[in-house]
Write a protein that binds this DNA or RNA. Structure first.
Lengths: 146, 146
DNA sequence: CAATAAATTTACGCTAACGTCAGCATTATG
DNA sequence: CATAATGCTGACGTTAGCGTAAATTTATTG
């Protein structure tokens, strides 16, 4: 059931990125799909890797970081040195992410406070906050993406 | 008690960045210290802003994102439109960060699993994991920072 | 006050992560 | 089968975020 195959544009559309980006990740060693002739063909594992890449990006890691991270999954667990190295790199990343977790939580707290204050201030003026937000779209020149 | 002033190098050293970076943030409108003649002088508020900038960076935001975010703090809360806008932008960021929170937690979980597995595998070979990690430093050409 | 040391501006350089052609081959379709 | 549509490989262009060097004040210190 996991034998489904994907074209490059299918993946691109699914994840809202460009084929160019996907090819670029390949040149960086993050993906290595099969080929049918010259055409790239992605299987379920390739797709899973792409998911990891995109999540890594959302977390602000560089593609090189992400490669190192992905390699943790595929690392040989044959030599003890490999295993020790796995632990070492894993711990480093864990440390980084724990810091990031703290940052995210702090910032979320601050933002929620700001939003709540703004909402209260609107209510105090006898306005419906949701309505006020809606109205912005009509007054302003239309900002973000359809 | 919060009237302490800082030179650019003091801040740079405290946060382990370069003066060049701090000046760069200023050109992007993220900081606006006073001047004593031509020399930049930073007060407590400037320093607090810098902290926000650096945290934003750790979260993977662009400097432009960070500017928008910082501006939320200083936004006028006089007009209702401003308040509604504040809510809108705040919610957008909150959404992003909630996604990021999920990403961080997922990735942390995966990494902890990998690290634990590596540790168990080493133990199963009768090795002390900590020792094995230590030994890496002596065998390998010395990789990361001091 | 002469000699450093520290700051400033200006400007060019560099890397990451793609975007954007160009030119060509392959595949799909009316 | 003519014509799109899709894909491939270069190769150059672009933006963000500083690094680095040069030339020039400004500050500090023996």
């Amino acid at each position: 059931m996991n034998d489904k195959l994907y074209s490059i544009t299918e993946l691109a559309e699914e994840f809202d990125i460009t084929p160019r980006a996907i090819r670029f990740y390949e040149t960086k060693g993050l993906l290595s799909p099969q080929r049918a002739g010259a055409t790239r063909v992605y299987n379920y594992r390739d797709r899973a890797r792409l998911v990891l890449v995109l999540r890594g990006k959302r977390l602000g890691f560089t593609l090189e970081d992400i490669k190192e991270y992905i390699d943790l999954y595929d690392a040989e667990r044959s030599h003890s040195d490999q295993l020790a190295h796995l632990m070492l790199v894993g711990r480093k990343r864990i440390g980084e992410l724990e810091q990031q977790l703290e940052d995210v939580q702090t910032t979320l707290g601050e933002l929620r406070k700001i939003e709540a204050e703004a909402r209260d201030a609107l209510k105090a003026r006898g306005l419906d906050p949701e309505e006020a937000v809606q109205n912005l779209g009509r007054k302003l020149p239309a900002k973000a993406g359809v």
